[in-house]
């Protein structure tokens, strides 16, 4: 009996240790990957492996322009939802005229970057993981390596650059659409006009608030890309493995986004 219990405990500690070591290794891999991306961006031309514009543009089209319709729909919906909830809760103490402040701040500082990040993680982070995973099991990554073409420079850097440019752009668009949609509900409810609402918003939202949201979306862009790449690059076990790692990449990317968001707000806002 005693031996059995000891064995279970040892197995548990063994698993825990392996799990922790794997986690630390993954963080290390992520850091090394970011470092290698920066290296290729800075030194690629000197090493005769420049990062080319065409694949960056192709990725930007896919990540950014392709996500425009869904970002528009969801940020508009969330703007209206925030307006309804804001007016409802402020009415409790007769302060519904201040709803614009709450909606403007929460959209620009929080909801636009968060929703855009989650959408892009689901759309493009998963696609990146699946693409790299399939390339890996097809030996396409090996083929690049033995050709003397760095897979990081050729596959990861374009995605990272495109993501870091397009995610803040999408966030800015989500800001505009969300605020506009909120205005469509707020203006008639308060018996005001869209013009007056717009004036109020522009006087309330400071540059600082916009930058807060955009800076977060820049961090989210790095997170989505790196999580997607790491999961794609560690695919083993055929098509099933690709599916598993794609799911994992979406879950990890969204978790990373939400947790990083909280840490960022905690460090910047207090």
């Amino acid at each position: 009996m005693n031996g059995g219990g000891g064995k279970n405990l040892r197995d548990f500690l063994d698993r825990l240790g392996r799990w922790a070591a794997a986690g630390v290794a993954e963080f290390g891999f992520a850091a090394a990957l970011v470092g290698e991306c920066l290296f290729w961006l800075a030194m690629g031309r000197k090493r005769r492996q420049p990062v080319r514009l065409a694949p960056v543009m192709a990725q930007a089209m896919e990540i950014g322009i392709g996500a425009l319709p869904i970002v528009t729909v969801l940020s508009g919906t969330i703007g209206i939802m925030l307006a309804i909830q804001g007016i409802y809760s402020l009415k409790l103490f007769g302060a519904e005229s201040r709803v614009t402040l709450g909606v403007a701040m929460s959209t620009v500082r929080e909801f636009a970057p968060l929703i855009t990040g989650i959408l892009v993680a689901g759309r493009s982070g998963s696609a990146l993981a699946a693409r790299l995973g399939t390339m890996r099991i097809n030996q396409e990554i090996d083929a690049l390596t033995v050709m003397g073409v760095s897979p990081v420079r050729f596959l990861v850097v374009p995605a990272l650059v495109a993501m870091m440019v397009m995610l803040p752009c999408l966030t800015l668009w989500a800001d505009l659409v969300g605020l506009f949609a909120a205005g469509l509900y707020i203006a008639p409810q308060l018996g005001s006009t869209m013009g007056a609402y717009a004036d109020e918003v522009t006087s309330l939202v400071q540059m600082n608030d916009m930058l807060h949201g955009l800076a977060k979306s820049g961090i989210f862009a790095v997170l989505i890309t790196i999580v997607g790449v790491i999961n794609g690059a560690s695919v083993t076990g055929g098509a099933e493995g690709v599916g598993r790692m794609t799911t994992r990449s979406v879950v990890h990317a969204i978790s990373a986004i939400v947790i990083t968001d909280m840490i960022f707000v905690f460090m910047v806002t207090r």
Binding site: M135, Q139, E140, D142, A143, V146, M147, G148
Partner: peptide, 14 residues
């Protein structure tokens, strides 16, 4: 690596 060529079993075409 620019002086060697490799043909993989599955082709590994992109």
């Amino acid at each position: 690596r620019t002086r060697t060529g490799v043909a993989f079993q599955s082709g590994a075409l992109f």
